[in-house]
């Protein structure tokens, strides 16, 4: 079943194609949802909500861009809608305490996707969203500012803080692993 067949089938409301869409794209989209949520439970809720929106909006889908990107955008929107916009501003005020550690490249290469997702999920909401939108989705700070309702400068500073926080968490994790290995 091709992608265009799935799209046409979903537009006609055929359950067979809708199911195929869910089965085919849910693993990728689950990764997206997990990156934007604190835990997997919340990610499942977001993914569920996103698919409901997909089935409602697919009549209006125009194949001008990649279909997976369109799906990913819906998941991101669904995830962002669950957030409290004010939290982005609040989180900005508590950044000074974050240190500026450095992570060795070999440490990074040893980390798997699940570990990275777990670390990203530990970021505060504002940091996490800005980091995801900038680093993984490729949005500019102006676009992120529009999406989150914050100033572009806030987006920039939150990205920096998010990176620093991630590095700190990676170092902390490496330190714990070393202690375990040494005994």
């Amino acid at each position: 079943m091709t992608e265009s067949e799935i799209i046409r089938g979903c537009q006609r409301g055929k359950a067979k194609y809708q199911k195929e869409l869910v089965l085919r794209y849910s693993p990728q989209l689950m990764t997206v949802a997990r990156r934007y949520c604190r835990d997997d439970h919340a990610a499942r809720d977001v993914l569920q909500e996103a698919f409901i929106k997909v089935f409602r909006a697919i009549d209006r889908y125009e194949p001008t861009g990649a279909f997976p990107a369109w799906l990913r955008r819906i998941v991101i929107n669904a995830a962002l809608q669950t957030k409290d916009k004010a939290s982005y501003q609040r989180e900005q005020t508590n950044l000074d305490a974050v240190a500026h550690p450095l992570v060795a490249p070999n440490v990074l290469s040893q980390m798997g996707a699940e570990e990275l997702i777990a670390l990203i999920q530990q970021l505060p909401d504002g940091f996490r969203d800005v980091f995801n939108l900038y680093v993984l989705e490729g949005y500019s700070h102006d676009e992120i500012a529009d999406m989150l309702g914050i100033a572009p400068g806030t987006s920039r500073s939150q990205l920096v803080r998010a990176r620093q926080k991630l590095q700190a968490m990676i170092l902390q994790r490496e330190k714990e692993c070393y202690v375990k290995r040494v005994g």
């Binding site: 809708q18 869910v22 089965l23 693993p27 689950m30 990156r35 993914l47 993984l136």
Partner: peptide, 20 residues
């Protein structure tokens, strides 16, 4: 690492939940 990573998900259960 995460660009094309596919997470484990119970797609059947998800389909039952979102089935229009």
């Amino acid at each position: 690492k995460l660009g094309k990573y596919e997470s484990a998900v119970d797609a059947e259960a998800l389909w039952q939940a979102v089935r229009p």
